[in-house]
Design a protein around this nucleic acid. Structure first.
Lengths: 193, 193
DNA sequence: AGCGTATTGGAGACCGATCTCCAATTAATT
DNA sequence: AATTAATTGGAGATCGGTCTCCAATACGCT
């Protein structure tokens, strides 16, 4: 009962991802997104309440896509040491397959204006993080982590370190070398001791 | 032979650092800096050719301050393993003492508009990086690193990993815990094998 | 065929940031 | 005291981005 949309939400978000990947969050403006898909700015405002909402959605879609696979790897393997290695490999592999979205992941929610997000958007961010954090805590327990320092170390080994390997190459502008997964897995194992 | 300046360069850069630390590079605008020190915008333009130059200077001053101490630690200790541990500790300690500047360090030159910098600014950035990179290469050799993968691992252990520990806490908004230096040194040692 | 509705497509108001310009100010020099 | 030079302290032009508004459009439904 209505005119068919010419520009759907995902198409606009895809453009936003490309813009953010090449120019950072600051490059994600309503006009830039509109221009990138060849739409008038009015159409962008039809999908997103404002720039704040667009930034929130582009960040959340990216993080949720990443977390989906990451969570599956984390919980899909009963042996905790193998799960840990698989998780750290997965981070690098996902970034290799999704270089633009990976570039987003290296920023933080704060860079995408989290302070101004609606409650709904903030809630979505929290719930995704909580789920991964819980899985990580289970794994930490299975690995015998006792104190906070040991848990910190596990989070570093399974999330932050792999992202750092990716960051290094993305910043340098070079593609991820073939051995990046091996290097990361190796280092993760070393960090777990 | 002239009216004495009321606002000197470092004072303006200090304000720029605070702005960048709390709101990212995007928050560093000419007017925001002027307002932060109580100066009219004209005075800011008297010191910096434009926003591009201001961003370059704020980034370069920060990185050069960091690199100065880092380079000293890297080259001041003859035993390579001890030098490596000291370097990784130093990164965390420096960030603890300079939290605002540390927040800048977690971004990249690209976020401070490196693509638009003057040749002079770009040269300064390269020369600082080259110096540290050379010291790091010497250390890698002393540690017996053979292939590229081993060198990557050393750079990760001595620079990227410590910064990641800092990033984790800065992003979470929590202060660096007392054991951060120990944790980092431990992990660096583990990464070096 | 005609109605209702969701979307398009674009014009333009508004706002904040960059940058220019220049008279006024202040201090060292002559 | 007069001169000169560097800086201040703004006023305002200009540009780009956000956001509003509405007529035109195209489809499903009756």
């Amino acid at each position: 009962m209505a005119r068919p949309p010419r520009f759907d939400t995902d198409q606009l978000l895809d453009a936003a991802v490309r813009l953010a990947a090449s120019g950072g969050p600051a490059a994600v403006t309503m006009s830039a997104v509109a221009q990138a898909v060849g739409a008038p700015s009015g159409s962008v405002y039809h999908r997103f309440a404002g720039r704040t909402a667009l930034l929130a959605e582009v960040w959340l879609r990216t993080v949720e896509r990443f977390q989906e696979g990451y969570f599956a790897v984390l919980t899909g393997e009963p042996d905790p040491r193998r799960a840990a290695r698989a998780a750290s490999r997965h981070v690098v592999a996902w970034c290799r397959e999704n270089p633009d979205e990976a570039a987003l992941l290296l920023y933080g929610a704060a860079d995408f204006g989290r302070a101004d997000w609606s409650d709904e958007h903030a809630r979505r961010a929290d719930s995704g993080n909580d789920r991964v954090f819980a899985a990580l805590a289970d794994l930490a327990e299975a690995l015998g982590a006792q104190d906070e320092q040991a848990r910190d170390r596990i989070a570093l080994a399974l999330v932050d370190f792999p992202l750092t390997v990716v960051r290094r190459h993305l910043r340098a502008g070079t593609p991820l070398p073939p051995h990046a997964e091996d290097l990361t897995e190796h280092c993760t194992a070393a960090l777990l001791g």
